[in-house]
Design a protein around this nucleic acid. Sequence first.
DNA 1: GTCTATAGCAAGATAGAC
DNA 2: GTCTATCTTGCTATAGAC
Lengths: 198, 198
Amino acid sequence: MTAAAQVSTNSVRVRDNKRPQLLDSAARYFCQQGYDAAPMRDIAAAAGMKAGSMYYYFPSKEDLLVAVHEEGIRRITAAVTAAIDDAAGPWVRLEAAMSAHLRALLDGGDYARVVIKSLPNERAPARQRLIALRDEYEALFVRLIDDLPLADTVSRRHLRLLVLGAMNWSQSWYRSDGDDPGAIARAFVEIIRKGDSA
Amino acid sequence: MTAAAQVSTNSVRVRDNKRPQLLDSAARYFCQQGYDAAPMRDIAAAAGMKAGSMYYYFPSKEDLLVAVHEEGIRRITAAVTAAIDDAAGPWVRLEAAMSAHLRALLDGGDYARVVIKSLPNERAPARQRLIALRDEYEALFVRLIDDLPLADTVSRRHLRLLVLGAMNWSQSWYRSDGDDPGAIARAFVEIIRKGDSA
DNA sequence: GTCTATAGCAAGATAGAC
DNA sequence: GTCTATCTTGCTATAGAC
């Protein structure tokens, strides 16, 4: 194949590539209906194609889920690291990270939501890989919490689990007409800094 | 029908009633494989019957899930209220409740786990009913947290959401060879009571 | 690249014998 | 009450034309 033919092939590929629409559509359906309940037909239709055509881009439904997860983690990580860069002081940085994490999960679109909602089945080969991806992201919080000035009696590991658990669970109670993610992060940090009044 | 015949009918009913085994089996499968992925055939087989026979006890799979949830909530509620009764002092009572809640979720069998893991699909008619059941249970924590002596700047509502979220999410990281539920509850309470050392 | 058509399978639920 | 047998439906994935 000549160099010119390659360029031509590549530009055709770029122009006709519907992979992004497909991913968007998958993220939306996985988020709203759950992985198992979202049919490939519907995902394809929302991206403007028939079910069979998707397999040109993704060899299986599970691969589609993995791709959505990867993009979701990428977006959450980008939002949180950007927020940390703008903040100074350990507590301010933690609150900024929490605010960005919550915003991504609650108002940040379907990709991030799927990361929390739709882990694949126990025996799915991809499961361990996705868990590893999330663990890698959460390591960010290990460092943030290491920097906090805390009483000696406080377990930093449990603090991390407390904070991440509370944030990830927030999808189950959040309503967009209540507190915004920033207010939730502020309230959570306030609790951790000074709970007891006695 | 005579009274004697009724008694006879009832005792037969009691003796042959496999509803409990069916519920146990459903709880196990819903917990391990998730609601969608658990086939009625397998649930029936583990309870010693064929798939078709289950419909004598439960008119649909969704009804089966509702029954498991109800039993799960009943057990968690019983465990937590019993733990509170033995405890004096607002912080001790909260920690006792958290310890019991965590023990139920993490080491308490399949019923309680299903309550957290397997909420039915968005459009399932039973969904709202199950959420209402859980809300009713969680009202216990409203009272426990109302009794705490807290700094004025602390939002009791957010404290409740923080604590319940962290506990419910713990299923995703808990390993039975690590801290036991009591130790987790202790660590969480310690964080809330005195976080900041500055 | 996208289509149509369909293979191949597994699921929930039902009917009727016993 | 439980069985067998089956209906009906929906799904993922593939094959091959265009």
